[in-house]
Amino acid sequence: MAGKRTVLTAGLRRLAALLFEMREGVELSKEEVSGKTGINVTTLYRIEAAQARPQRRTLMTLLDLYDIEPDRRKYALDLLSDAQKPGMSRPYEANLTEVYSAYINFESEALSARHYQTSYIPGLLQTPQYASAVIDTSMPKVEAAVTESRVAARMNRAIVLTKEEPLELWVVLDEAAIRRVVGGPEVMYGQLGKLVEQSKQKNIILQILPFDAGAHPGMPGSFTLLDFPEPNDPELVYVEGIAGDELIEGHAEIRRFGVIFDQLRAMALSPRDSIALVRDVAEASPGRR
């Protein structure tokens, strides 16, 4: 039986970065730490890469070796407690990829998200019927229970838009996404109506990138930039693709995606004109009764 996987969360990433910083501070290699503590080098690598959650006794051993002062020791232990809490993805992880599960957890703790989508309405703004049609098409020949679980996960994600301190969401959407009929005319009409309603929320900005904008830097594919309220949490980019999804870190890559997003929103219609276009497409939809 396969072991239970560790799904990345913001708390686990924060703890991993702290332990790396502590080890570097005392100028010890992983091999030296292993020799002094008996902790396997591979385990140390996985802990510092946020691929494994350390046990409390392992963490205590490392804190002792690094001679960490009481306040910082408490902070590390608090981070471990935070990392042990189940992320938002926990109820659905059996039917989600590891990267997507991690993304859901990060999204739930993010301050803002800048999202560019080429082909369909972003998950946070989807209706259940639209989400079901998208998932059913992208995951052919899966059991109905798997589709239902993934739809439920997608609907649950939307809580971030209405919580006490909601996610600030800025979406640039290719015009193709509002014109492609997904799930049939009635489903699509309902989805367009939801877009119009959600655009009224103060924390949501929606822009449509029209066909007549021509070639643009987002043509290679969709992506999301996440920013976090904790200063020590670096930005993340989530990239979607047929070959698999990916979470990207690193200042140079983050900056590149940030520049691309700025170019896309400059080329897109204004929020007011974007909603007018969505309304026009909905009015012309055969799904309108």
Rank of each mutant, 00 (worst) to 15 (best):
M1H: 03
A2M: 03
G3I: 11
K4H: 07
T6A: 11
T9E: 07
A10S: 10
R14P: 02
R14S: 12
L15C: 11
A17D: 14
L18C: 04
F20I: 06
M22N: 02
G25H: 09
L28C: 00
L28M: 05
K30Q: 13
S34R: 04
T37E: 06
I39R: 12
V41N: 06
L44H: 12
Y45I: 09
R46G: 00
E48K: 10
R53K: 14
P54V: 13
P54Y: 14
R57M: 07
D67T: 05
E69S: 00
P70H: 03
P70L: 02
R73Q: 06
R73E: 08
K74P: 00
D78Q: 11
D78G: 11
D78W: 06
L80Q: 11
S81F: 11
P86L: 09
M88Y: 03
S89G: 04
R90N: 05
R90V: 05
E93A: 12
L96R: 12
V99W: 00
Y100E: 03
Y103I: 02
N105Y: 10
F106K: 10
F106P: 08
E107L: 02
E109N: 00
A110L: 00
R114E: 15
H115M: 08
H115L: 09
Y116H: 09
Q117I: 03
T127M: 09
P128R: 01
A131Y: 06
A133P: 05
T137W: 08
S138D: 14
S138G: 12
P140R: 14
P140K: 15
P140Y: 14
V142D: 04
A144G: 01
A144D: 09
A145I: 09
V146I: 14
T147F: 09
V151R: 05
A152K: 11
R154P: 02
A158Y: 00
I159P: 01
L161A: 11
T162D: 15
K163E: 06
K163L: 01
P166G: 04
E168W: 13
W170S: 12
A177L: 01
I178A: 10
R179E: 15
R180V: 14
R180K: 15
G184P: 13
P185A: 10
E186G: 01
E186D: 07
V187F: 10
G190P: 00
Q191D: 01
K200C: 01
K202Y: 10
N203R: 07
N203V: 05
I204S: 14
I204L: 15
I205H: 04
I205Q: 08
L209G: 11
L209N: 12
G214H: 15
A215P: 03
A215E: 07
P217Y: 03
P217L: 02
P220Q: 11
P220N: 10
S222M: 05
S222D: 06
F223L: 11
P229R: 03
E230R: 03
P231Q: 02
N232I: 00
D233P: 02
P234L: 02
V237C: 06
V237Y: 06
E240A: 07
G241L: 03
G241S: 07
I242K: 00
I248W: 08
R255C: 10
V259T: 12
V259N: 08
V259F: 11
V259P: 01
I260C: 02
L264I: 09
A266R: 15
L269E: 07
S270F: 13
S270N: 13
P271Q: 07
R272P: 07
S274D: 14
S274W: 14
L277Y: 04
A284P: 11
S285D: 10
P286F: 07
G287R: 10
R288P: 00
